[in-house]
């Protein structure tokens, strides 16, 4: 019997608690973002909060920080990143990475196909220099699907070709030097080298 009345009391009490909560929310600040009608101004701090800080939107690659390790390319589950690198020719003037590291590779081609991207964020986690990041830019639809392929290489194709040729020349030079050295050196040494 006591239980019966306690149940009734609990029922009434919890309903009242619930009603208090909902009535509080009735007058609370609303969280709705009236997006297409009112565009959130990402530059103002107050409005930028409307886009969650950990939201995953368009990717961006810091060209001066990407060391060309291809970690992102390997980790992407949908293969939408493609990175092409070439070795830095010794003696070339190489700026340090923005994060201070030494650059060993030129990124001659770096494309991200945002039409394929599934926003899993695996690439950003793989990047050793945090060069690839999600931005808060979420409005980037295009009429042509090819326009969604973004290019993040610091070089134009011609410049890239210059770097590639430079390294190819260097390699050819090295090979020529080696060949010359091999010709000069005694035969047994060469066989030894081959072993």
């Amino acid at each position: 019997m006591g239980n019966y009345f306690r149940n009734i009391w609990l029922g009434v009490w919890t309903v009242l608690v619930g009603m208090r909560i909902t009535i509080n929310h009735l007058v609370m600040r609303k969280v709705t973002n009236q997006y297409p009608d009112r565009y959130p101004d990402l530059k103002s701090l107050e409005e930028a909060k409307l886009v969650p800080t950990n939201s995953r939107n368009r990717l961006f690659v810091d060209k001066e920080d990407c060391n060309g390790c291809k970690g992102c390319e390997r980790d992407c589950p949908v293969n939408c990143i493609s990175v092409e690198t070439t070795r830095v020719t010794p003696g070339d003037t190489v700026p340090l990475l923005r994060s201070g590291g030494k650059r060993n590779l030129w990124v001659t081609n770096f494309t991200i196909d945002m039409a394929k991207c599934c926003f899993c964020s695996l690439c950003t986690q793989a990047c050793p220099t945090s060069a690839i990041v999600h931005t808060s830019e979420f409005e980037y639809s295009e009429y042509n699907r090819n326009d969604l392929v973004y290019q993040f290489s610091p070089f134009s194709p011609e410049e890239a070709q210059v770097k590639k040729d430079m390294f190819a020349n260097y390699q050819a030079e090295q090979a020529a030097k080696k060949a010359a050295a091999a010709a000069v050196a005694p035969a047994p040494a060469a066989t030894q080298e081959n072993v």
Binding site: H25, K30, Q34, D37
Partner: peptide, 14 residues
Amino acid sequence: KIGAFMQDRLGPMR
């Protein structure tokens, strides 16, 4: 409207 407000939404606005 009341339903929306109680869920911190704005409800129909357009």
